[in-house]
Structures are given as C-alpha cells and as structure tokens.
Amino acid sequence: MEERDDRYLRESYNQARPHSGERAPDFESMMERAQDASRARRHAGRRVWLAAAAVLLAVSVAVFSLMSADTELPEASPQAQSVEAVTDDEDRLAAPSVVDDERWEELVELADELWEEEYPTDFLLVSLENDELWE
C-alpha cells in the first residue's frame, strides 16, 4: 500500500514538477567557457603571486637597507683621524692638527718632566723587574 502510494506520489511529482519543460544548454559550449574561465583564473592567480613576490622582495630590500644604515659606523671626524695617526705611530710625535707645533713641543716637554717626577727611571726599572708589582 505504502509502496503504491510512493509510486503514485513519484509519478505525480515527475509529471507536475516545475521547470520540467526547460532543456539544458549545450554541454560542449559550457565546458569550453568553463575551461576558458578556469585558464583565465589560473593566469590571474599567477599574476597575483608574482606581484606579491615582487612586493615582498621590495620590502625585504628596503628593510635590509634600513638595517644596514643603522649598523654602519659613522665616519671618523678629521680630528679623530689625526689623533689616531699620532697614536698609531709611536715614533712620530708630530702635533695633531688641532694643536700648533710650538704648543705641542711645550706639552711634550711638560709630560716628560711630569713622568720623570712621578715615575723615576730607577723605580720604573725595579718595578718592571718585580713581577709581584704587576700582579
């Protein structure tokens, strides 16, 4: 009985179902359009990836440049360069450019005097021989 009811309902539905007169569009042309759209989307996707990679590269370069600029030591000033030149060469006692030669000579002499007063040569020699003093 139920089976017969179901069969009747099914038949009734299939006879009266809405849109039953509509026919599907051509399969081939739909597939062609789908393939074209799919291909276009793939190309668009590839372009988006390329653009994203380019942006990423540009940002990386910019960040790297900024970081390099931060860590670079500033160039030494001319004054500092002169002092370095003097201290690097122990034999050379030329006056730094910031002090004139005459004044420099006075300073050197004064330093010698002070050194000798403070650290007499004998004491210095004894001191150098006595390791304990250095410990």
């Binding site: 809405p18 509509e22 789908a34």
Partner: peptide, 22 residues
C-alpha cells in the same frame, strides 16, 4: 540532470541555473 537540479535550486531562473552550473 545537473541542469534540472540547478534549475530547481535557482527556483526556475534559467540564467542563475546556467551560471551555477558553469
């Protein structure tokens, strides 16, 4: 059959059914 189902899902609007199937 797929088109008929698409038509059912789009309440009989043919253009929507075609777009959905596409």
């Amino acid at each position: 059959a797929a088109f008929q189902w698409a038509l059912h899902c789009s309440a009989g609007v043919r253009q929507d059914a075609e777009d959905g199937l596409q």
